[in-house]
């Protein structure tokens, strides 16, 4: 009986350890690894981890911005992956100056898209912005990659 109890305790502890690792593992480098597996034949260039706490009611959702220089003649794929343990879903938008080029969220249909593919024809400085829908708490990673 006691033996059975200790076995149960042992496996429960193992499960707990594994589960807590999984929760922790989602946000950070591990999330980049998970997202990297989605790239297929695209080549990893850079990752952009984003973690936001829930926006205060009445205030605008926080936006994180990164500048990138994109080159003409290259087709880029910008992936995004969410930490499933957090409620927020990331919206990635690509801008050239103030001009919106593309976004992973369609306001009309309410759909999120996994990546943006952009065959660049004008080299220059672009920016990627990351925010979580409705200012929810979230953790995500964006990956800039190039199609070979």
């Amino acid at each position: 009986m006691i033996k059975k109890f200790f076995y149960t305790l042992f496996f429960a502890s193992l499960f707990g350890l594994f589960f807590s690792y999984e929760l922790k593992a989602q946000c950070g480098s591990e999330l980049t690894d998970i997202c990297h597996a989605e790239l297929g034949d695209a080549r990893f260039i850079r990752d952009f981890p984003v973690q936001h706490s829930e926006a205060q009611s009445g205030s605008s959702p926080r936006v994180t911005r990164y500048n990138v220089v994109l080159n003409a003649g290259t087709t880029y794929r910008i992936f995004s992956c969410n930490d499933q343990t957090k409620p927020g879903k990331v919206i990635v938008s690509l801008y050239r100056g103030d001009q919106l080029i593309a976004t992973t969220y369609d306001v009309d249909s309410g759909r999120h898209f996994p990546y943006i593919e952009y065959p660049v024809s004008a080299s220059g400085q672009y920016s990627l912005t990351f925010m979580f829908k409705d200012g929810q708490e979230g953790c995500a990673v964006g990956i800039l990659s190039s199609v070979r």
Partner: peptide, 9 residues
């Protein structure tokens, strides 16, 4: 997925 068509150069 989203594909951008951009005629800029």
């Amino acid at each position: 997925s989203i594909v951008v068509v951009d005629k800029s150069r």
